[in-house]
């Protein structure tokens, strides 16, 4: 333990030291240039190391992935668009895509709605109770997906009909005199997918709530009073005065959650491993790469995911800029 700690400290020191030395050397180099050039070139020299690191760890692998997506399973031969056509042609992958879309449609919107509802309701509590309620609701954020999976297994667990039911939901169902239901295998109308979504909602509504609540508290009280005098009902005040004023936060939360949901992996992997028609793109990628050892398919999946995320990211950046401009 001690050795590990010392190692960690040494690593940090060495890393920071190396960075300092690097920048010192770069600085000396630039200073060799004649005055005017020094000023012009300096920023580029300073950005260069960071840019190089990003290029090495982000851009290079991204390009590599795109390249692999046109190659076969062990990346030894070109196969053109075959990976893509095979994936998109397969019924199971189309199901996987559909499930992912379902997550994207449901979870971000539900997160915003629940987050807003909780933020507004908590706002009406006394300060002490508000703090307690918010802390409690925020708490699941601190639990890893695996931990969350373990907890929710207890809720969805199923025992044979004659045995006592360990799962909360089945305890209720059998308590009402029905047979126990195998929840995670119940895929009528994608019911089990929705149950997995509930776990993610449970885990991240607190995050949305905290940001939205801060935004709501930032709305000037006078504008609410003005609206009240202007004759607006509480609902109209919420819809026409509060929400427009916190719209920037709503969009930010929505996009953050959307990107997270597109990459959703852990909850599904832990709970069902994509079985019973709950598969999503993130899990499929993992299984192609580490179970089927198919680099080509895995890369193609990631590229498709990347293409899907890109427009959202671009929108987000634009939105941020527009927001800044207004401010």
């Amino acid at each position: 333990m001690l050795i590990k700690t010392i190692n960690a400290i040494l690593t940090v020191l060495a890393g920071v030291g190396a960075a300092l030395v690097l920048y010192w050397v770069l600085n000396k180099l630039v200073e060799l240039l004649p005055g005017k050039w020094e000023d012009r070139v300096k920023p580029y020299f300073y950005i260069a190391p960071a840019f190089a690191a990003i290029a090495l760890y982000l851009i290079y692998p991204a390009i590599q992935t795109v390249v692999y997506s046109f190659a076969n399973a062990d990346s030894t031969a070109w196969v053109g668009l075959k990976n893509y056509s095979a994936l998109l042609g397969s019924h199971s992958f189309r199901q996987t895509l559909f499930n992912t879309v379902l997550w994207i449609v449901v979870v971000p919107a539900a997160t915003i709605i629940l987050g807003l509802a909780i933020a507004v309701l908590a706002d009406r509590l006394k300060p002490g109770s508000e703090k307690l309620a918010k802390t409690t609701i925020f708490l699941p954020m601190a639990i890893s997906a695996v931990g969350a999976g373990t907890i929710w297994r207890f809720i969805y667990a199923t025992n044979p009909p004659n045995e006592p039911q360990l799962g909360l939901q089945n305890a209720i169902v059998t308590g009402l005199g029905h047979d126990p239901v195998n929840w995670l295998q119940l895929n009528t109308l994608h019911f089990n997918s929705f149950e997995l979504m509930v776990i993610l909602l449970w885990a991240q509504v607190g995050f949305a709530m905290v940001l939205l609540s801060a935004a709501i508290k930032g709305v000037p009280t006078e504008t609410l009073e003005a609206a009240r005098i202007d004759g607006a009902s509480e609902l109209q005040i919420f819809g026409r005065v509060i929400v427009p004023q916190i719209w920037g936060t709503v969009i930010t939360v929505f996009i953050t959650v959307t990107i997270g949901v597109m990459k959703i992996f852990d909850i599904v992997y832990v709970m069902t491993n994509g079985n019973f028609n709950t598969n999503v793109v993130g899990v499929e990628f993992f299984n192609q790469l580490f179970t089927n050892f198919n680099n080509g398919y895995a890369a193609a999946i990631v590229v498709m995911l990347m293409l899907a995320v890109l427009p959202i990211m671009i929108y987000q950046v634009r939105h941020f800029r527009a927001d800044e401009a207004v401010r």
Partner: peptide, 8 residues
């Protein structure tokens, strides 16, 4: 402080 609706 006028309490104008900033988004309108």
């Amino acid at each position: 402080n006028y309490a104008l609706y900033p988004h309108m």
